[in-house]
Design a protein around this nucleic acid. Structure first.
Lengths: 187, 187
DNA sequence: TCCATAGCCATACACCGTATGGCTGACGCT
DNA sequence: AGCGTCAGCCATACGGTGTATGGCTATGGA
């Protein structure tokens, strides 16, 4: 039904999202504009609004599907310290892949507030494994996430010294430190 | 020399900064516009550019002077653990006073990259007191700042459960945990 | 065959940051 | 006293933004 002027197929939400994400990767959230996005898709800017309610909604959509699709290490039965480190490192690497998107996400935490998200489910599982009592899980997870978030921000803005591997090692060290503190705490 | 149409005195950088900060407090960085700021000061938008190079430069100025003027606890001779907790809490409270500004700051860490800033000087002093070896100070301070930054973000976005005092107690607990880990680490 | 409607687009509005260039009046100097 | 300099301010304009509104068009179902 009235497909675009010079495109074969009609627009797809998927298509819109992926090229929008690319534009965000290249120029940050403010580097993404509906007009540029439309140009990239060879379409009139207003056509996008038939698939998306607003720019904000689009960005939110991108962020939340990325959060849902994060690929994180599965439960491999290893000690909780190792699993926690692996999870944190997984988060960190996911974030490094799309710094601008995660930057936006960290400025709008409500997007990943849903506790059914894979990250939180995995984190809670590990905390249970670590023996963190039920009522402490929320706060503990918040603290851990706060640190990971902060490290991601510092890392992606290029304000951590050393090469990437060194930075990852520093991250790992810090997580060890915190898990150490955690263990001491529950005792 | 050709003072404004309807103002007695000429504009001041101080005056510009403070009302700009107020606008940021009210509507975030994107809620601050040169036009609104000018209207607030009863002045033509372009007049601002005689005192400030750009909006970006203005925001940067506000952030860095706020960083310089942070009021933080002095060296009171108490154990490093207490001083570190006090410093972190001081940072947290400074940030809570102007969430939008600090949000911007955390997205542009280069503004507070200068290691001569009071925060870093105080932090380094405490780390020395804690016996953190010289070459480890940078990384340690980065880790600590990462956590504080993350907690501030989560806290200011209202995504930590509980009332403010409860949140502060959680923060304190977390800092204790980390300092505990730190102590165990240096041994 | 007809029509509802999905998909697309043209135009327009209100906002943004800011480049450019001109006005005005207070000051220093002779 | 006369004059030039220039700080301070402003009017206009340009190119960008998100998006409201309303109209076109071709396709699927009845």
């Amino acid at each position: 039904m009235a497909v675009s002027a010079r495109r074969g197929a009609p627009l797809t939400l998927e298509e819109i999202s992926t090229t929008a994400l690319r534009l965000m990767d290249e120029g940050g959230v403010e580097g993404l504009s509906m007009r540029k996005l439309a140009a990239e898709l060879d379409v009139n800017p207003m056509s996008l609004y038939h698939h998306v309610e607003s720019k904000d909604a689009l960005v939110r959509l991108i962020c939340s599907t990325a959060a849902q699709r994060m690929d994180l290490p599965p439960d491999d039965g290893s000690p909780w310290q190792d699993q926690l480190r692996a999870l944190a490192l997984g988060y960190y690497r996911n974030a490094l892949a799309h710094p601008a998107m995660w930057s936006h996400l960290h400025n709008h935490p409500e997007i990943i507030a849903d506790r059914n998200l894979v990250i939180w489910q995995a984190l809670y599982r590990i905390l249970r494994l670590a023996g963190v009592p039920e009522p402490e899980q929320r706060r503990t997870s918040d603290v851990l996430h706060a640190f990971v978030m902060g490290y991601v921000i510092a890392g992606t803005k290029g304000h951590l010294p050393g090469d990437p591997e060194e930075i990852e090692r520093g991250f790992d060290t810090a997580i060890r430190l915190i898990t150490g503190g955690l263990a001491g705490w529950s005792r």
